[in-house]
């Protein structure tokens, strides 16, 4: 079985083959055996070539969260169609500004068609009485504005879309 994951705009292909307790993983032509054991609800023990890891795993929709050595890896499981779009998106430099948590929109700082610098704040959202400015990771123009002030949004809602193409 081949799984494709996206992590911070990078695509990874993982080939998984199973033989009883042991699975074989192939990433970028590198093959290694993995012993995988569930030890608690979301807690797993992984042994890879004698190296042992305690890993927390949580699947949420298309995201698979892996918690390892204090860091959270948020992999987006993608189909081959998604990859094509993602690759196209990366080439064209299209970035979705998503709500990081359930919050309400305070102010939309950039309107449709407006130019945005890299690292510039584009929208202000509020949660727990604290306002946060979300910044654009790329320079470009606002291609879509999906919300207006006062809107309540869920975690992951696409608020704005920034495009670097002219």
């Amino acid at each position: 079985m081949i799984y494709t994951f996206k992590l911070q705009n990078e695509i990874f292909k993982v080939h998984l083959e199973e033989e009883g307790q042991l699975s074989e993983i192939e990433i970028d032509d590198k093959k290694f055996p993995v012993e995988f054991k569930r030890v608690d609800d979301n807690l797993y023990s992984l042994i890879i070539e004698d190296r042992s890891f305690a890993v927390g795993i949580l699947k949420r929709g298309k995201t698979i969260e892996v918690y390892l050595n204090g860091e959270l890896y948020e992999f987006e499981a993608t189909s081959s169609r998604d990859i094509k779009t993602a690759a196209a998106g990366a080439a064209e430099g299209i970035q979705e500004i998503k709500s990081p948590m359930p919050s309400s929109v305070v102010k939309v700082l950039k309107g449709l068609g407006e130019a945005v610098k890299e690292g510039e704040s584009v929208i202000v959202v509020e949660a727990m009485k604290m306002e946060s400015e979300l910044k654009s990771p790329i320079a470009g123009k606002v291609k879509e504005v999906n919300v207006e002030p006062g809107n309540a949004v869920e975690s992951g809602t696409v608020l704005l879309v920034i495009s670097s193409e002219e």
Binding site: M1, Y3, F5, L7, Q8, F12, V14, L16, E18, S23, I25, I27, K30, F32, V34, F36, R38, Y44, L46, I48, R51, F53, V55, I57, L58, K59, I64, V66, L68, N69, E71, L72, Y73, F75, A77
Partner: peptide, 19 residues
């Protein structure tokens, strides 16, 4: 975040997906 343990993390993600 320093996502330095990519290999075991990816292995875990794949196994998690399968489960």
């Amino acid at each position: 975040a320093q996502l330095a343990d990519l290999e075991p993390a990816l292995a875990a993600a794949a196994l998690g997906m399968r489960n």
